[in-house]
Design a protein around this nucleic acid. Structure first.
Lengths: 148, 148
DNA sequence: TCCATCATGAAAATGATTACAAATATTCAT
DNA sequence: ATGAATATTTGTAATCATTTTCATGATGGA
C-alpha cells in the first residue's frame, strides 16, 4: 500500500506526533517496505542516503514513538533481531526456517473474531501470532532438487 | 509439573544432550518454575546459591541447547527481555499490561488442530501465539476500587 | 590408561539500544 | 512574518545483555 505523503502527515498529526521530516520519512519507509519488516539498521541504511545527517538514535526514537501510538508493531519472531511492521490490518507472521523471510499471513484469529474478548477471566486487548516452518518457495526448491 | 530427577536425566539423554549436573539443574529449575517463565538472570541467581561456581555462560549455553533440542522455548513477548519456557504441552501466553505477569493460556489454535498444517502453500511446523491485556486479578482490583 | 570429545567457567569482545547535552527545527501567539 | 517556547534531532559516550574465546576439567570409548 503506497500512501501519499499528505495522508501520512495527517496520520502523524492524528496520533499526536509532530510530523517532522524524519518521522515522515521513516513512516513512508515502513509503508513502502511493509512486506520486508525492516530492522532499525535497514531503515537507517536506506534513509541516510537521502538524509545524510540522520542518526540511529532518531530511528530508534521514531519507531518507539510509533510503537507507543500504535502506528507500528515490533516483531521479535527470530529472537535475535527486532523488526518493525507498519500496522494497517490485523495479521500474523510466518518465519521460514530455510530462507529466513518473514511473510504476512492474513488468518483471522477466532478469538478476536468473537465478541467477548475474554479468556479465563482475562481481558484480551491484543492478539499476536506467528508461525514457523518452510515457505512455499523453499518447499518447491527442495522438490526440484529431489527430482535429479 | 514436578518431575523427578531421573526422568529429567533421561529426557536430556533422549534429546542427545549429556546429562551434566548444570544442565540437570537448569532443566529442573525450568520444570519447577514453569509458570514464572524465568529469565537467564533469574535462573543464574537461583542456581548460584546451590552451585556457587556456575557461570552465566553456562546458563546461556544450556538454555540455547534446550532451545535447539526443543526442550524449551524463548518468550520475547515484552520486547525488553527474553524469558524461557519449559515445553510440555502446546499453549499460548498472556501478558498482563498492568502487573507484567505472563500467564499460560491453554487455547488450542484451530490451525494446529486441523490436519493439513498448510497455509498459503507454506508448511507450518510451529504455532506461537500470545495475547496482551489485563489479567483477571488486576481487573478485580480495579473493580473493588471503583466501588468506593 | 590414554586419547578424543565435549562441557564448563572466566574474561574479554561484541553489538544493539539508551542517556545525555548541545544544536536545530517546529509551533503558535502575536 | 517574527520570535519565544517547546519539542526534536544529532553525535558521542555509556550501558547492558549476550556471544566468543580459550584454558581447564570431566567423560566415555578404544
Amino acid at each position: 500500500m503506497i500512501t501519499n505523503i499528505h495522508k501520512l502527515k495527517n496520520l502523524l498529526k492524528t496520533k499526536g506526533l509532530k510530523p517532522t521530516y524524519q518521522r515522515l520519512k521513516v513512516l513512508q519507509y515502513l509503508d513502502k517496505h511493509m512486506d520486508e519488516h525492516p530492522t532499525v539498521e535497514a531503515i537507517y541504511e536506506s534513509l541516510s542516503k537521502e538524509i545524510p545527517t540522520i542518526s540511529m538514535t532518531t530511528i530508534y526514537n521514531t519507531v518507539n514513538a510509533f510503537l507507543e501510538k500504535g502506528l507500528a508493531s515490533a516483531i521479535t519472531i527470530t529472537g535475535t533481531e527486532v523488526r518493525y511492521d507498519y500496522i494497517t490490518s490485523h495479521h500474523h507472521h510466518f518465519l521460514c526456517k530455510k530462507c529466513g523471510r518473514i511473510i504476512d499471513i492474513d488468518i483471522q484469529c477466532p478469538i478476536m473474531a468473537g465478541r467477548k474478548k475474554r479468556t479465563h477471566g482475562h481481558k484480551i486487548e491484543e492478539v499476536h501470532g506467528y508461525f514457523k516452518g518452510v515457505c512455499k518457495d523453499c518447499l518447491e526448491k527442495v522438490h526440484v532438487k529431489a527430482k535429479h
